[in-house]
C-alpha cells in the first residue's frame, strides 16, 4: 500500500515538474530566441505605441476604413479577452434576422453582399476579409478619403495574401494592415 502510494505520488510530482515546468520553460526559451516577434504576439507598433496585433482583428467603424467582419466577441465585438462565435444555427430565426439586417446595411448598387460581411466569424477576432468583401468596400473608402478608386484597389491588391504554399487555406486580406497602409498615404500627403 505504502509502496503504491509512493509510486503514484512520485510519478505525478515528477511528471508535473517535467511536463508542467520544464517543458513550457524550454519552449518559451527557444521561442524567444528563435522567433521573438511571433512569440510575443506579432504586435504592430506605430509611433512607439502598440496599436494591435497583425493576427487579431479590431473594430473599424469610420467610413474611410475598411470594415472587418461582424464579431460576437464581447458586447461590442473584437474584445480580445472574450473570443466567441455567435453559436447560432442556420435554422435559428434570430441569426437569420441579424444576417438580413447586416446585409441590408452593407448592400449597395444592388450587388449581393459577400457572406463574410454578413456572417460573424468563429473567433470574433478574425483579422481577415475575403478579397470579395474588401473589393465590396473600395468605393466607399475611396470616396471618404478622396482618393482615386484605382489607388485604393491597388492597396487592396498589395495586401491580399494568396493560398499558403500555393494550395492551403483561402485567399484573404488583412484588414489592419490594409487600413494602416491607407493611413500611411494620408500621412505622406499631409507632409508636403
Amino acid at each position: 500500500m505504502f509502496n503504491s502510494l509512493r509510486q503514484v505520488g512520485g510519478f505525478l510530482l515528477l511528471m508535473t515538474l517535467i511536463t508542467g515546468i520544464l517543458y513550457p520553460a524550454l519552449v518559451t526559451g527557444a521561442a524567444q530566441l528563435l522567433f521573438k516577434d511571433a512569440a510575443n504576439g506579432s504586435l504592430v507598433m506605430r509611433d512607439g505605441k502598440i496599436v494591435g496585433s497583425s493576427l487579431i482583428g479590431q473594430s473599424f467603424h469610420g467610413e474611410g476604413y475598411f470594415h472587418p467582419r461582424p464579431s460576437a466577441a464581447g458586447k461590442d465585438g473584437y474584445d480580445g479577452a472574450a473570443s466567441s462565435g455567435s453559436n447560432l444555427g442556420v435554422a435559428t430565426k434570430s441569426l437569420n434576422d441579424t444576417i438580413a439586417e447586416r446585409a441590408a446595411a452593407a448592400r449597395h448598387d444592388d450587388q449581393p453582399v459577400p457572406a463574410d460581411l454578413a456572417m460573424a466569424s468563429a473567433s470574433g477576432l478574425d483579422p481577415h476579409l475575403s478579397p470579395a468583401a474588401a473589393a465590396y468596400q473600395i468605393d466607399r473608402v475611396a470616396q471618404a478619403r478622396g482618393l482615386p478608386r484605382e489607388r485604393v484597389e491597388a492597396l487592396v491588391q498589395a495586401n491580399t495574401e494568396g493560398r499558403q504554399l500555393g494550395f492551403l487555406g483561402q485567399p484573404r486580406v488583412n484588414v489592419l494592415a490594409l487600413n494602416l497602409a491607407l493611413d500611411d498615404i494620408a500621412r505622406a500627403e499631409a507632409k508636403p
Partner: peptide, 27 residues
C-alpha cells in the same frame, strides 16, 4: 444558409457564420 441568399447575401462563400476567412469551408 438557404435563408441568407434571399436576404441579399452572395452564396459564393457558403455558410461563413462561425467560420474564419483564412480557413473557409474546406479547411
Amino acid at each position: 444558409n438557404p435563408f441568407a441568399t434571399p436576404a441579399g447575401v452572395d452564396p459564393a462563400l457558403a455558410n461563413m457564420e462561425g467560420k474564419e476567412v483564412r480557413f473557409g469551408t474546406v479547411s
